[in-house]
């Protein structure tokens, strides 16, 4: 098991390096001069040239990328062109906001999506089922930012219950998390329902009923754990995405998290910042993925024995 985890971690390295290369190329193709944009339109050309020299922007592509990789291996991901602060430091200071929103959103989504999915499956074709499926369908079709704006309209502007922007109190995180949770919740409800329906029809569920177990017992003790695998997958993918930072929701609610950092980096051609933050998002996503795979082995003994063998 440990060997498997180490192997997976090592496999993440080429992906991260690949990301740095692709983004390096894209940023290289992006028009504009970061030195000029930092110093301003009316700065002296000599100053701009000096800064370009300092950042090594005049070297050929291969040299610049090689230098970047070499220092990245030593743990130095450079300083932001825009703020001159080491990018790692910047990410660390911005990340808690993104993490709070993401965690709250996934908790919202799970707390509602999974139970509703179970109830929908158990009471298939009932009013509850139709209602929750219709809601889920609607939530997959609503743009999260529009939902966010509507929440602001209702809860901030009309009811004055929640702050519309910022990250000052825990209240600030409710609306962005809810806006992000809607789509995740819809996916979870639908996934839970369809896997539960499949599991409920399995022979071993009939065996459990034949033992004299109640419907509730059979659903909670036998069906749920068997239906959990695909649900955990969906939760994992969703959480991984959310932890990568939402560019748009962070913009709507004025949260300066990872998403905002990335957008600003693109806008100001701040390559070190962009590359480091995307690599970070990918790393977090990969770790969540790995955690989900490890979790599988606790849920399903068949998966566990595969790892023991190989």
């Amino acid at each position: 098991m440990l060997r498997y985890v180490v192997k997976r971690l090592l496999l993440m390295i080429p992906v991260i390096v690949g990301i740095s290369f692709i983004l390096f190329v894209i940023m290289d193709l992006t028009p504009g001069d970061p030195a000029r944009s930092l110093l301003g339109e009316y700065a002296r050309q000599e100053d701009v040239d000096a800064l370009r020299e300092e950042w090594g922007l005049n070297d050929p592509f291969a040299v610049r990328y090689g230098r970047y990789l070499a220092s990245a291996i030593r743990g130095d991901f450079g300083k932001s062109y825009r703020t001159n602060i080491p990018v790692v430091q910047e990410i660390i200071s911005r990340y808690p906001a993104t993490m709070k929103v993401a965690t709250l959103a996934i908790l919202f989504a799970m707390a509602i999506g999974i139970p509703v999915g179970i109830i929908s499956a158990v009471k298939q074709y009932s009013l509850v089922d139709f209602g929750s499926m219709a809601t889920a369908l609607l939530f997959t079709s609503v743009p999260p930012f529009w939902l966010g704006l509507m929440l602001i309209l209702i809860f901030s502007l009309m009811l004055r219950l929640l702050p519309s922007v910022g990250t000052d109190s825990w209240k600030s995180f409710i609306m962005p998390a809810a806006a992000l949770a809607a789509a995740q919740m819809a996916t979870m409800t639908r996934m839970t329902r369809s896997t539960m329906l499949e599991v409920i029809r399995q022979d071993y569920i009939r065996t459990a009923k034949a033992k004299g177990a109640s419907q509730r017992y059979v659903v909670l003790k036998h069906a749920l754990r068997n239906a959990l695998l695909p649900v955990v997958t969906v939760v994992g993918i969703g959480f991984g995405n959310l932890l990568g930072g939402s560019l748009i929701i962070e913009n709507v609610f004025g949260i300066s998290g990872l998403g905002t950092l990335m957008v600003n980096a693109v806008k100001s051609k701040d390559s070190p910042m962009l590359i480091a933050s995307v690599m970070f998002a990918a790393l977090v996503g990969g770790l969540v993925n790995l955690a989900v795979d490890v979790l599988y082995t606790y849920i399903d003994p068949r998966v566990r024995s595969q790892y023991v063998k190989g």
């Binding site: 080429p14 992906v15 991260i16 690949g18 990301i19 692709i22 983004l23 894209i26 940023m27 193709l29 992006t30 028009p31 995405n241 990568g244 930072g245 939402s246 560019l247 748009i248 998403g259 990335m262 957008v263 693109v266 806008k267 051609k269 962009l274 995307v278 998002a281 990918a282 996503g285 990969g286």
Partner: peptide, 21 residues
């Protein structure tokens, strides 16, 4: 493997970066 690299990036930021370029 190349596709995996693209898939590991958050999709929106990739699009944003390409629009930038």
């Amino acid at each position: 493997r190349i596709m995996d690299i693209f898939l590991a990036m958050p999709g929106t930021i990739l699009a944003v970066a390409i629009v930038g370029a």
